[in-house]
Design a protein around this nucleic acid. Sequence first.
DNA 1: ACTCGTGTTAGCTG
DNA 2: TCAGCTAACACGAG
Length: 272
Amino acid sequence: MPELPEVETARSLIADQALDRTIAGVDDSDTYVTRPHTPGQLRDALVGRRLTAVHRRGKSMWVETSGVEGDPAPGPDLGIHLGMSGRIVVTAPGGKATEGGGPWRRDAQPRKPEWDRFTIEFADGGRLALFDTRRLGRVRLDPDISALGPDAGEITAEEFRRVLGKGTIAVKARLLDQSKIAGVGNLLADEALWQARINPAVPVNSLRPEDVDRLYHALQAALDSAAANGGAHTGEVIPFRHAGARCPRDGAEMRHGIVGGRSTWWCSLEQA
DNA sequence: ACTCGTGTTAGCTG
DNA sequence: TCAGCTAACACGAG
């Protein structure tokens, strides 16, 4: 579920609560989430270190680690991706848990312990966990982020124009391409295209310069709004992404289709 | 029982 | 090699 704004919430949670606490143990036994690492590999690399800084580009995070006693050289970076259903849960020494990155359905499900797919135990008794029902999140050492495009929240209008590029690919598919722009997910893409009144399926080479400009500003506004309101699911058109819904702007029927391989909703009138 | 999904990616095609 | 597409991954929710 997490898109850029939710991942930023998770990053900020780690920055505020998980840094400078000594790592005493690591549960990396879920080899699907930690692939291609083998069990114990992350534990051996992390125990005795502290998390020292946390970064994010798009939906990817990486955490720097300290040296160990006797070897001050920094340790490996710990890469974390929340996937479709991951959240970060940080527990204070006293046991109080705070979470970040999820679709805030509090109390929606019981917290099955096996949904903690990766856990760092701190020496102070607290912990950091990747909580992930669908298990599509990933944790790995020294992640390669070189394939990611510029962060969607930091890209300039000029870069955006260049990155949207040429070709016949649907504009929504291009928005979702993390190697071009990092951080836009399915909901943010639908929201930005709806705000900009652009049909998600039109080829990028059919967009006029003013369309691209409108899309850029709509995307920035959607990111700001999502950050301020708690996530991509708070977008204006998001509640109307279902059968029988009508566009909240003009009352026209909402259309549905698959664009860029993802479930897509658009206004039949203004995004025709 | 059965379909869907706020993400990523290996592998295929032209 | 590149642009673009599809299936697969895993599993809970509706």
